[in-house]
């Protein structure tokens, strides 16, 4: 019966016991203090966005004192040792690769998302979600390895000769580049990389359409496709566009995978078989020497700034649309 005897607390134990049963006032006080501390922590994301933008802009500043912004952005010659910093080959290269990648990814991705949300069985959907998560987790350098092993030779030996033979009269299909390291290779790798992302977001947008609306449409005799075209797509179009733009923004900033397959020659591309040199690749390839030539560091960090601004514009616009669509968030 020893164990059930009521213990006699010493004075210090009583004090200790009090700690676990604090008064309401002190608990309220704790709550409020924690609120203030946590509020400060919550400002971190907002501060970080501002800091990154200002930090890069400040490092970009020295070169803007020498050349005008427009001269830098529209200049086509990149010779840092001669003090020539033209960003146009890199900016246009970035857009070429992104547009080719997004163009290849968008149709199959939207169709796949539609298939998953409208046609697929529950079991297929249940498998697809974890599979998409897995694929989104594959590091970009692995996609790059795949590009070098599989896509570059494919473009070099099959795709480029085919287009040259049958579509060579179209300027953007002219192939003067003897290697497979090209915009098309970069685009294909990017398309596969952003596919899981676009499918997942589009699928989520499609799921916001109420089941009742679908059934009402089917009940009046519309086929599945008619329902998709006139009900589902009509209602979700802004969200789908935002999902696609968000996916394209990922492509815009992708570094390693593109760098490995795109050739990296600073020229303004004319065809999808030309090499390109996107902004992220420029930064990654040259960060080592950037302290050795005057203004080189300002130019490279300026490249990062330009990339950041382009991405921020697309990103904020599409995020706002998505927040509205998915109903969970708004600003």
């Amino acid at each position: 019966m020893d164990r059930q005897a009521i213990p006699v607390l010493t004075e210090s134990q009583k004090m200790e016991g009090r700690k676990f049963r604090p008064s309401l006032t002190s608990r309220r006080k704790q709550d409020q203090t924690a609120g203030r501390v946590l509020f400060a922590v919550t400002l971190l994301p907002i501060a970080l966005v501002t800091l990154i933008t200002i930090g890069l802009a400040a490092r970009f500043w020295p070169i803007l004192k020498v050349y005008s912004f427009w001269d830098l952005v529209s200049g086509t010659v990149w010779k840092p040792q001669d003090g020539l910093f033209g960003f146009w080959p890199f900016i246009s290269g970035t857009f070429w690769v992104t547009i080719v990648g997004a163009g290849l990814a968008i149709p199959p991705c939207i169709l796949t998302a539609l298939y998953l949300s409208e046609y697929a069985r529950q079991s297929t959907r249940a498998i697809m979600k974890p599979l998409l998560d897995l694929l989104a987790a594959i590091p970009s350098v692995v996609y790059g390895v795949w590009g070098v092993i599989a896509i570059v030779p494919l473009v070099e030996k099959n795709i480029a000769p085919f287009f040259e033979k049958y579509l060579g009269f179209v300027p953007i299909f002219v192939s003067k580049n003897p290697t497979g390291y090209s915009i098309l290779s970069g685009g294909i790798v990017l398309a596969v990389m952003i596919a899981p992302f676009i499918i997942a977001v589009t699928y989520e947008v499609l799921m916001t359409v109420s089941e009742g609306l679908r059934q009402a449409s089917l009940a009046v005799g519309a086929t599945q496709w008619q329902t998709i075209r006139s009900i589902i797509l009509k209602q979700t179009m802004p969200g789908i566009i935002a999902a696609v733009v968000l996916g394209a923004t990922r492509a815009l900033g992708e570094t390693m995978a593109v760098l490995m397959v795109v050739g990296n020659v600073p020229q303004v591309p004319r065809s999808i078989f030309d090499t390109a040199y996107p902004l992220p690749a420029l930064i990654a390839n040259n960060y080592g020497e950037m302290m050795s030539i005057p203004l080189y560091d300002a130019a490279l960090l300026g490249a990062a700034f330009i990339l950041l601004v382009i991405i921020l514009i697309f990103n904020i616009a599409s995020t706002l649309v998505l927040q509205r669509m998915l109903g969970k968030r708004w600003v």
Binding site: I46, L48, V49, I52, G55, R250, A304, L307, L308
Partner: peptide, 26 residues
């Protein structure tokens, strides 16, 4: 709360090369 979430969404979209460049500056 929505502003904080928007800031997080924006941060999430910033490519890692930009974080690298920013880290380098710091």
């Amino acid at each position: 709360g929505q502003y904080v979430r928007l800031a997080l969404d924006i941060l999430w979209g910033i490519p890692s090369i930009v974080y690298g460049a920013f880290g380098f500056i710091v």
